[in-house]
Simulated scan of single mutants.
Amino acid sequence: MLGVVAGTSISISIDPAGGPYPLAIIIAAVLAGSLGFLEDLRGLPIAVRAASQLGVGLIVVVAVSSCWWWVPVGGLAIAAYMNIANFMDGVNGMSSVHGFIVGLAVATIGFTGLGPTWMIPAGLVLAGSFIAFLPWNLLPPRVFLGDVGSYVLGAVIATILVSAAMSGVPLLTLLSMVAVYLADTGYTLLSRIARGERWYESHRQHVYHRLEDLGFGHLTCTAIVGGATAVCASIGILSAGSGYWLLPILAIVAICGGYISLPVIFARKQVPRT
């Protein structure tokens, strides 16, 4: 959280032309990190936690947009991705790699002129802040991200993507960066609801959880999710401005579908635990 705040503050002092968007990133990081810190220390009831996450999203969107319909849409998007990032923070290194890949993709969009220039420092700060955490969390794992870290990751990514959408960046390009996380969480949530389970309770049924149970190590799971995310993000960036959208969508859907199918495929092959 402090890395995101410090890095973004420095970028504002160097180039204040980014408008309200860099400030929104700081607000998102501080509010989400503070909420996650309370959750880590004391725990919060589900209703209080959900209302607080939505409050964070609404405050951030109000800070950057005067368009009334963006407020509920953007607020819900930020609150939702805070939870998604928290759900996907289950093996060592995955969140750091996710923040790094999405940050590089965001910076690439700004650098290539596909989006506003404020996305360059925003992406680099995001990538740098989370890749700096990787050595502490991977080999050997000594520190865990916790709610404070995963909330910051989700809120900052969602704030950048919502702000970029407001700035005219194609939605397909933005969603491609988070497609794998959305697919894993959406598939798992719908599956639990269909089975009549209490979907809001803690569980180990995400795709990456099931791969881990089949014997895949943390590093392998992180590499699979990170690799799929990088490929989807590359497809989304390459499709921006091309006028073609059907083939990129089909490719991203195929990648996400293949990822979701991995536990079934390898369970049939009876991969030995290593």
Results as ranks from 00 to 15, higher is better:
1 M>S: 13
4 V>D: 12
5 V>C: 03
11 S>H: 10
18 G>S: 07
18 G>N: 05
21 Y>V: 09
23 L>Y: 15
29 A>T: 03
30 V>I: 15
39 E>F: 03
39 E>Q: 11
51 A>E: 04
52 S>N: 04
57 G>R: 04
57 G>V: 07
61 V>T: 12
62 V>C: 12
64 V>A: 14
67 C>I: 14
69 W>Y: 15
71 V>Y: 03
72 P>H: 07
82 M>V: 09
83 N>R: 05
83 N>D: 00
89 D>A: 12
90 G>I: 10
92 N>C: 01
93 G>T: 10
96 S>H: 03
98 H>F: 15
99 G>S: 01
99 G>K: 05
109 I>N: 10
109 I>Q: 13
110 G>A: 03
110 G>L: 06
116 P>K: 11
119 M>A: 15
121 P>K: 02
125 V>C: 06
125 V>Y: 05
126 L>R: 03
132 A>K: 05
142 R>K: 15
142 R>Y: 03
148 V>Y: 15
148 V>M: 14
148 V>P: 13
152 V>G: 06
153 L>P: 02
156 V>R: 08
159 T>P: 08
164 A>G: 10
168 G>V: 10
173 T>S: 13
176 S>K: 04
177 M>R: 10
182 L>T: 08
182 L>R: 05
184 D>C: 02
192 R>M: 01
197 E>P: 02
200 Y>G: 08
200 Y>M: 10
201 E>K: 14
206 H>W: 00
215 G>Y: 06
221 C>P: 01
225 V>I: 13
229 T>F: 07
229 T>C: 02
238 L>V: 12
241 G>R: 00
242 S>R: 09
250 L>I: 07
251 A>Q: 11
252 I>F: 04
254 A>V: 06
255 I>E: 09
257 G>T: 02
257 G>Y: 02
260 I>V: 07
270 Q>L: 08
274 T>W: 14
